[in-house]
Design a protein around this nucleic acid. Structure first.
Lengths: 156, 156
DNA sequence: TTACGTGCAAATAATTTGCAGTCCC
DNA sequence: GGGACTGCAAATTATTTGCACGTAA
């Protein structure tokens, strides 16, 4: 069943838990649903992550944004929080080579363009790509996820 | 054209440059074709990399093998050499999340299984997977490569 | 109150770099 | 011989951890 999910990019249902319409309370609800206390830092980072549509960022990047947005938080907490959010399924890590780890605020299955040289990620719309035939999976294993990265370079 | 290559996994033509049949001289030829002096270290690492079929390894891993095989080489040189080989197109980096960088001795386009928990990579046979529809590429860009990683987990 | 969070600084882990000495062409 | 290559150790970069203090339930 994981195979089919690969082709869709719908938001997870949790996006509207406790949907009062207010972004802040929605962030709060998502945290609580994940068993995380809605502390000032987590609320602030959650706001930055979820209030602006789908984004791809690094821990450093989010830390920088938090500073600009006057969210009082340390870099270590940004790392901790990103991992907790990932564990909770609110965001996910994107597998790209390179030293830094990128996090994607869209936890639903979808794929990416990766711009070589710029180290930038762009979402690929769900309907624009599909994995046709899936390979035989080794015994005792199942597919957790299928990641597709289309690497782009500037045309000559 | 990059799109179609995605589905094939044939070895690159360079694999047989100067093919006298002897593995050592074949490694030597490949290095020279890439403009790299066939030094003892590069020959040794080239042997380890190419004489055993397709492999996926980290710098640390190759260093360890070199030690066991009595190839005198330092870790720094292993890193340098892996990057030079990558630049020359003899091997390639595989994009998987995690701290370590994996190198693949098969530089041809093909895809991978990634075993979660074990951090292990397995080749997917070229014919077993295919990307059906490719997305529209942004203006001025072209596809450099398409990477597919099928993440596997042990069945419950 | 009290367990969970957070900040800071120090610790790791992977990788890169500077430079003196070595080796291939 | 001379530039390319290598080894070592020190430097960098990204990330994690230990521990004292703060704060939500």
């Amino acid at each position: 069943m994981a195979a089919q999910d690969t082709q869709t990019a719908t938001r997870p249902a949790t996006a509207s838990v406790g949907g009062t319409g207010c972004v802040v309370s929605r962030v709060k609800s998502r945290l609580q649903a994940a068993g995380l206390r809605p502390t000032r830092q987590r609320m602030g980072l959650g706001w930055l992550l979820f209030a602006q549509g789908d984004r791809h960022l690094t821990a450093e990047g989010l830390y920088e944004e938090a500073r600009k947005a006057r969210v009082p938080v340390s870099l270590a907490t940004v790392y901790n929080t990103l991992h907790q959010f990932t564990e909770a399924g609110l965001i996910r890590e994107v597998a790209v080579e390179g030293s830094k780890t990128y996090f994607d605020t869209n936890a639903a299955n979808h794929h990416h363009f990766f711009i070589e040289g710029e180290n930038r990620l762009i979402d690929i719309e769900g309907s624009d790509i599909a994995v046709a035939t899936l390979p035989n999976v080794p015994d005792g294993m199942e597919i957790a996820r299928v990641d597709v990265v289309v690497r782009l370079r500037r045309k000559a």
